[in-house]
C-alpha cells in the first residue's frame, strides 16, 4: 500500500499528474476564496451554494443533451447565483433569519436537483451516467480539458479578487465605514458571491456537492493559527487547500476505488485538529515562560 502511495508521487502516469494538478488548483482557489467567506462569516453560504448547483447541472444536461463540462459549469453557476439572491432576499425581506434562509435555499434548490436527477435517470437511461459524480467528486476522472477550465475560471476569479482586494477587506471588516468611503458595497458583495459560485462550481468536481463546504472553510480556518495578517492568511489558505487536495487524492489513489472528496476533507480536518492542539501547547508554553 505504501508503494502505491509513493507511486502516486512519482507522477509517472500522465492521467494521474493531470488529476493531481487539477485537484491542487481546485484546492488552491477554493481555499483562497474561502478566506473571504470565512471572515465575512459566510462559510455556510458556501454550503448552500454547492448544494444549489445541482439543479443547474441537471437542467443544462436536459436542455442540451450533452455533458460538456463548460455547459454544465454554466448551468451550475447560474443556479448557484440564483440561490445567493434567493437566500439574500428571504433573509433581508422577511422576519426569517439568515440561518433559516440558508437552510431553505439549500434544501429547496437541492431537492429540485435531486428531482431532476432522478427524472433524468428514469427517463434518459444510460446517457446520464456520471452526473452523480458531482455529488461526491471524482478527482481521478479530471481530464486535461477539465484542468484547463479549472485554471481559466480559477485564475479569472482570483485576479478579480486581487484587483478589489482592499475594497473587499474594508467591506468585510466594516461595511458601514467602507460605504462611507464611497466603496460600492453592492458591487463588492456581488463580486464575492460570483467568485464564490464559480470557485465552488469548479470545486465540486473534486469533492462533490455535499463536502464542498469543507474545502471552503477549512484552509482559511487553519491559516488563522499561523498568521495574524490577512495577506499572509490568503496565501496560506491557498497553499493549504492545494495541499489538502493533493494529499486527499493521493490517499484515495492508494486505496483504489474510493471517492476523493471524503479523504480531502479528512486531511483538512486532521490539520485543523493538529493546529488547535499545537496552538494549545504553544499558549501553555508561552504563559509558563511568562511571555
Amino acid at each position: 500500500m505504501i508503494e502505491s502511495f509513493l507511486n502516486f508521487f512519482s507522477f509517472s502516469h500522465p492521467n494521474v499528474v493531470i488529476a493531481a494538478i487539477g485537484v491542487s488548483l481546485i484546492g488552491f482557489f477554493s481555499g483562497s476564496v474561502g478566506t473571504f467567506l470565512v471572515l465575512d462569516k459566510k462559510s455556510l453560504l458556501g454550503d448552500a451554494i454547492s448544494h444549489s448547483l445541482l439543479p443547474g447541472i441537471c437542467l443544462a444536461f436536459l436542455i442540451n443533451g450533452s455533458k460538456s463540462p463548460l455547459l454544465l459549469l454554466t448551468g451550475a453557476v447560474i443556479s448557484g447565483l440564483m440561490s445567493t439572491y434567493f437566500v439574500d432576499f428571504i433573509s433581508n425581506k422577511s422576519k426569517l433569519s439568515r440561518d433559516a434562509a440558508l437552510a431553505i435555499g439549500l434544501s429547496f434548490f437541492f431537492s429540485i436537483g435531486i428531482m431532476l436527477l432522478t427524472y433524468i435517470q428514469h427517463n434518459q437511461g444510460s446517457n446520464q451516467a456520471g452526473l452523480e459524480s458531482y455529488l461526491f467528486g471524482k478527482a481521478a476522472s479530471i481530464s486535461l480539458e477539465d484542468t484547463v477550465m479549472i485554471s481559466i475560471a480559477g485564475v479569472l476569479s482570483y485576479v478579480s479578487l486581487l484587483i478589489f482586494y482592499r475594497q473587499l477587506k474594508a467591506t468585510i471588516f466594516n461595511r458601514s465605514f467602507a460605504s462611507s468611503q464611497g466603496i460600492s458595497i453592492k458591487f463588492i458583495q456581488a463580486l464575492l458571491n460570483a467568485c464564490a459560485v464559480i470557485m465552488i462550481a469548479i470545486g465540486i468536481q473534486a469533492v462533490g456537492v455535499v463536502l464542498m463546504a469543507a474545502l471552503i472553510l477549512a484552509p482559511a480556518s487553519i491559516s488563522r493559527f499561523y498568521s495574524k495578517r490577512l495577506e499572509k492568511i490568503l496565501i496560506l489558505s491557498g497553499l493549504i487547500g492545494a495541499f489538502g487536495g493533493l494529499m486527499g487524492t493521493a490517499v484515495s489513489y492508494t486505496l483504489e476505488g474510493m471517492p476523493t472528496g471524503p479523504w480531502i476533507v479528512l486531511v483538512l480536518f486532521v490539520m485543523s485538529i493538529l493546529s488547535i492542539v499545537l496552538n494549545y501547547f504553544k499558549t501553555k508554553w508561552q504563559t509558563r515562560s511568562g511571555l
Binding site: 471572515l39 486581487l162 482592499r166 471588516f173 465605514f177 468611503q181 464611497g182 466603496i183 488563522r224 495578517r229
Partner: peptide
C-alpha cells in the same frame, strides 16, 4: 479580524479607486 493597528488605520485611505493589494 486578522489586521493590526496600522492596517486598520490605513483603511481610512481606501476608496472606490483602491485597487490591488498595496497602498
Amino acid at each position: 479580524f486578522p489586521i493590526n493597528v496600522f492596517d486598520l488605520v490605513l483603511m481610512g485611505r481606501y476608496g472606490p479607486r483602491s485597487f490591488f493589494v498595496r497602498s
